[in-house]
Write a protein that binds this DNA or RNA. Structure first.
Lengths: 207, 207
DNA sequence: AACAATAAGTTACCACTGTCAACATTTTGG
DNA sequence: CCAAAATGTTGACAGTGGTAACTTATTGTT
């Protein structure tokens, strides 16, 4: 991960910084990294990063942006994987599982998605756009389900999507923060993911 | 917030530090503070704090601990407020609202509850104990509901409680992180809290 | 009451962080 | 070919968590 030797310029430092930082937080399963160590890992001075990002928060925002895109891709992949099904039920289930899987296997990235330094919509509008794009995948499926007469029509699909998102986010977050576990290894009792999904989607189709 | 003037010793610096730090994060609605500024606000040198806490994380853990206790108190207050009701339905609803209210009105404290530096159960067992004590309030109500034949018997009350906790935590977290709002002021569509609670508890009593 | 032990402050330092300014070099466009 | 712009460099700054060595106050024992 060093620069092209002999060359003064790196070539594509901007992307390299994002990749290296993402790699770090992925390996650490936490969103802690310093700009300086990322620069050093690329064989570049610490100030070089600031030619490409106005601040560390800007770098965080880019990482989060690609994170949301990856998440959306994971959800879409789950949708395609179940596209042979006629009804929407199993697609929703697969998407719920995909969401939680993404959070668990990309703990560092998942945490940056909601980093307090980048939650200001006015400062990072594109970030919130891609966040909404992820949600859009869920909304679309729900609308499809409503058209099929399988999913309850009230509240509307958008509202339903935010509810399901909340639940999935809460489960994933508590899991990453070691407040709940499937095995009950902490103080809280064992919490089955399947039971969780049953419960959430059970409400969806009730009535 | 200065020390008793003229006296070398502060009197009760330990408590004062916790209170001052809590005050800071409450005012900022974020979990950012430095040990040094807290010490300075008490008219004391920065190193004095380290006579009472081995590390900043230890201080965070104490803050989180009292936070969990406050949360449990808020849940119990909701329970008492609805104790004239025969059935458990409205108590659960009130507790759901109390949980979200606590998170919103104590944003800084709520965030420290799940701070990554203190999520290791082995390092801070008492913290996870009080966390579980909060959950216990919910479990008890659910068990009562099951005894009344109102709440579904499967999954068991403990599992149900973690599911509801997940949902509430997700809603509160996304709300604090400005991913969802009741007015739809961001990219995500408006998300009604009442609709959210309807959905969550709807699943509880279904069948 | 005298005095050692301990508790609880102090200053001075360390390595590290984000960020910026001043300077150097490379690439690029006219 | 050269000025302009892009992209790198070093060196500084204030602020951070944390530790060590030192000083002062409190406390318990004789």
């Amino acid at each position: 991960m060093t620069k092209k030797s002999g060359s003064f310029h790196h070539g594509n430092l901007s992307d390299a910084l994002v990749k290296a930082a993402t790699q770090l937080i992925t390996a650490r399963k936490a969103m802690t990294f310093s700009v300086r160590e990322v620069a050093q890992s690329l064989g570049v001075s610490h100030a070089a990063a600031y030619r490409h990002f106005k601040s560390k928060s800007d770098l965080l925002a880019i990482i989060a942006q690609t994170g949301f895109i990856d998440l959306r891709d994971a959800l879409e992949a789950a949708q395609i994987r179940t596209s042979n099904k006629i009804e929407v039920k199993e697609t929703l289930r697969a998407m719920g599982n995909a969401y939680i899987e993404y959070a668990i296997h990309n703990a560092g990235a998942y945490r940056t998605l909601f980093h307090p330094n980048i939650c200001d919509v006015a400062l990072y509008p594109q970030l919130h756009e891609v966040s909404f794009a992820s949600l859009r995948v869920l909304i679309d499926i729900l609308e499809m389900g409503q058209a099929q007469g399988i999913v309850a029509k009230a509240p509307n699909a958008a509202n339903l999507a935010t509810i399901i998102w909340s639940a999935l986010h809460g489960y994933a977050s508590l899991f990453l923060d070691k407040q709940i576990s499937e095995t009950g290894e902490y103080f809280a009792p064992p919490s089955s993911r399947e039971a969780f999904l049953d419960f959430i989607y059970g409400g969806l189709f009730a009535k």
